[in-house]
Design a binder for these strands. Structure first.
Lengths: 253, 253
DNA sequence: CGGTTCGTTGAGGCCCATCAATCTATGTGG
DNA sequence: CCACATAGATTGATGGGCCTCAACGAACCG
């Protein structure tokens, strides 16, 4: 602190929340445990287990996963740098999903009890948690729409569009980002088999909407890809939460 | 108030939150607008429109709906008595879904700016909003698992199990509740066509897992229905939010 | 009683799953 | 450096779950 070390949370959605006052940000910084590095395919929270920490992904990819009785796997969320992996642990002892890294990753833990206590003392922190939860809501809702009403090709295209925005990877109408998912894992996100992911991905490549090189995903023409699947980024609310006069009012009270 | 009139919110999840102190509950009560009765198929929030109120369903059914570019419809949430229809409006100006009644309904509006101001002043209210948001998260996540990995029959069975619990309609191993959805609407929830809903529902009836009479859904053997689709009600967290020592700590501070 | 909405049934077809084999890339040990 | 093992990507053949289109029946209602 004395050395003005940059908090490992910098860049996380929690840290960057516009609902936080400076002293609230600092309170959060003092509550987190030291960042640590974990390997790929490591459970941060095992499925069905209880946990006392919120995990913030600082670098790398992770996912929520759940296994159905008949062995099928579903990934109900992809967690990118800045995301909180298990915000639900704030309010619930046991979750019906696990959290696991997909790549090597840097992770910060925030003890859940401290987080709650901070929320009770700092309105900005409490509202930030609500904001984060509602943001997840928007993404989950969009995934439901995708799973319910889109074709496989459109679902895949839509997912790539979403990731491109969430990773802030777009420039000059194109996008390029490191992409660690196997086709099996893409299938587990989209409710498809890896075989079909493969075929559909080839279609997108044939239409020059997608290119892959090594483990990099390249979207040469984001506008066309978006149009192909009806992607509208507004649900990601990259501009942050709504601000209102009432917020001003309570600020100045 | 003088007459000690029962708040129309009684029974709503917001009102019943165990995170609220009595004076916080009263503050909420004073913030709501008078209850009003609306007909079936009435928009509370039009898709893509902005709104300044949170809508609490007091009686009747409602849904969130969204239309895809190619005309497909998806209902990403069913709203039952006690639910908040558009909690997302707390933080976001525009939602990518609309809210519409499915039956005649009694609805209470809570001005969004007041809700935020109350949350800033009352930690219990702020945490209740977070809790409500995370509760929705759990349900949305489960729906994603259903849409991604379950067969049509299993999806329908799972939905009926969920509604049975959410409506608190179970007694003596059976369940019975009024059920206003058309087969078309069930399809819009489950990502299926009404034709296929019809066939799959008949299968469930043939297995004596479901009976319908007029507009009433009857589940004669809830245990067997649950087993048929792997339904586990824990994700609905009917017991309310987790309580901890830290919560006690800040209570007594 | 005619109109409208909803439910029901049948025929046919497509999207995606399943099963299985092959190919490629990467890593490991001798 | 090569033999081998393993994980992932790719391809083909086949089948099934669900969609599509269409018609008809049933319930409700002005």
């Amino acid at each position: 602190m004395a050395s003005q070390a940059v908090s490992p949370m910098v860049g996380s959605r929690l840290w960057e929340s516009t609902l936080l006052a400076d002293e609230e940000r600092q309170a959060l910084q003092e509550a987190i445990l030291p960042a640590h590095r974990v390997g790929a395919n490591v459970d941060l929270v095992r499925e069905g287990a209880r946990t006392d920490d919120l995990f913030i992904i600082v670098e790398g990819w992770a996912c929520r996963y759940s296994i159905t009785t008949d062995g099928g796997r579903q990934l109900p969320a992809l967690l990118l740098p800045g995301d909180v992996g298990n915000l639900d642990s704030l309010m619930f002892e046991r979750l019906d999903y696990g959290v696991r890294t997909l790549t090597e990753a840097t992770v910060v833990a925030l003890p859940r009890d401290w987080a709650l206590a901070l929320a009770a003392q700092h309105p900005g922190i409490a509202q930030t948690f609500t904001w984060l939860a509602l943001l997840e809501n928007m993404i989950l809702t969009k995934w439901i729409q995708s799973l319910g009403r889109r074709s496989a090709k459109s679902r895949l295209a839509h997912l790539l569009c979403e990731l491109s925005v969430r990773l802030n990877a777009e420039a000059d109408g194109a996008s390029r980002f490191s992409f660690p998912l196997t086709q099996e894992q893409m299938g587990d996100v989209l409710g498809l088999t890896s075989v079909h992911i493969n075929r559909v991905l080839q279609e997108l490549k044939a239409e020059r909407l997608v290119t892959t090189r090594y483990r990099t995903m390249i979207l040469p023409d984001v506008a066309r890809l978006r149009q192909s699947c009806g992607f509208d980024p507004s649900y990601l609310h990259t501009a942050g939460p709504r601000t209102t006069s009432s917020r001003m009012v309570e600020r100045t009270m």
